[in-house]
Design a binder for these strands. Structure first.
Lengths: 221, 221
DNA sequence: GTGCGAGCTATACGTAGGTTTGTGCCGTAG
DNA sequence: CTACGGCACAAACCTACGTATAGCTCGCAC
């Protein structure tokens, strides 16, 4: 298989583990551990270093020492969240305390391991983290196409879409927007075509996935 | 309408804090703390005791010492999960360790506080936990009506519902089920009436909320 | 048996959805 | 100026949706 072919299916496979630890011997040990089970590894020695690297395009996870030179692992976690990078994080700590653990877990860490870390615990945690990331990426991918098509709609088409997806009839949409019914019908057809929806049910699910507010939504009692 | 305004008319009823601790002085202190901010309280001295009580019908949370006579707080957490009771849990511990904390948080605990507990930390945690429970109850309530109406559908109506909600036209549904189109139309009308859906969009959202499998679903690219 | 509800269909009719073709206005990019 | 895209509408036409009325079978409970 050529590199090009590998790249083509990269989004689907070959997960990678990112290690951030200032202790070279720790980096080496973790790298060996992960490689021994066939995982790709990339190691960093500081938070700054990994923030400069581009986020991986494959399912991945971070293994992070809570005590790092400069900023702590928790700071890095917060920075990544702010940068909208949601790679799952596994913390390792030598002298962690409970409040620190709680904070990390509340912020979405998948695990928090204490030194000395047992190999099997680490591998289990990484396995779970990568699986979580894979799911997140799949979900992300499944709506990215929908979102980009939505971007291609004109302002008016979006108005109509919101009302149609909320269950209004064409004539009601027309009244709401001060249009003739025929105009709504035409926009509606354009929306279906542009969004690639083959039925109204499709369109409804797309708008829900996009989180478009419903002007007349319900579902109660 | 903002989320705050919605909140005001959400799940009615006086929230309650359930305390489980074998230390009478701790129970008294916590009870006083919560009552001082106007929260209702019910205290228990063991896991067995609270398992016998009926789960509260109002937004609530558990404040749980991790070390309990008989079973540990983590065991109680697991038992409650098994019994399908999802009241949010706040743990308190005197001598907890990190693995215990991780396990509790992974299992869905909202917080894990160490003694001595600062009053404000406890109140913040309880506030968050009750809010979480209120949201969960609201979500639960909003689909319970839909679910019960779905139970009232006949077998054939459910067949038709699944296909209609997946976006098929009446004639396609008819072909799929070996029926005449007119039959599908009539069932469809009955479904709309029985489910209380005022539009197809409604119906689609209901089926999605119920997790009904789609025979011809998509949403890709 | 009688009644009842589920299941199934038919004819008929009215409404809603959707496309095509064509018209026109407006603003802006070239 | 001209071309283009967004916006808006109309007439004509076809398809899909939905209801009412009516009739049929089957199985089950009384």
């Amino acid at each position: 298989m050529t590199d090009h072919e590998k790249q083509a299916q990269a989004s689907a496979g070959e997960p990678i583990v990112l290690i951030v630890d200032d202790d070279p011997s720790m980096r080496r040990a973790l790298t060996n551990l992960f490689q021994s089970v066939g995982l790709k590894v990339q190691a960093f020695s500081s938070a700054a270093e990994i923030m400069e690297a581009k986020p991986p395009a494959v399912p991945s996870c971070l293994v992070l020492d809570i005590r790092l030179p400069g900023s702590s692992g928790l700071d890095l976690q917060a920075d990544l969240a702010k940068a909208n990078i949601h790679t799952p994080i596994i913390f390792i700590t030598g002298h962690g305390d409970i409040p620190m653990t709680v904070r990390a877990m509340k912020s979405g860490a998948v695990d928090f391991l204490t030194k000395p870390v047992r190999d099997q615990d680490m591998l289990d945690a990484v396995q779970a983290a990568i699986e979580r990331d894979r799911k997140r990426r799949d979900a992300e991918k499944s709506i990215s196409g929908v979102r980009s098509r939505f971007e291609g709609l004109t302002a008016r088409e979006r108005d109509v879409l919101a009302l149609v997806a909320s269950g209004l009839m064409n004539k009601q949409v027309a009244a709401e927007l001060g249009l003739a019914e025929i105009t709504v019908k035409i926009y509606r057809g354009q929306i279906m075509r542009k969004m690639g929806a083959k039925s109204l049910a499709d369109l409804v699910r797309m708008t829900d996935a996009l989180g478009i507010p419903r002007n007349r939504g319900h579902l109660q009692t």
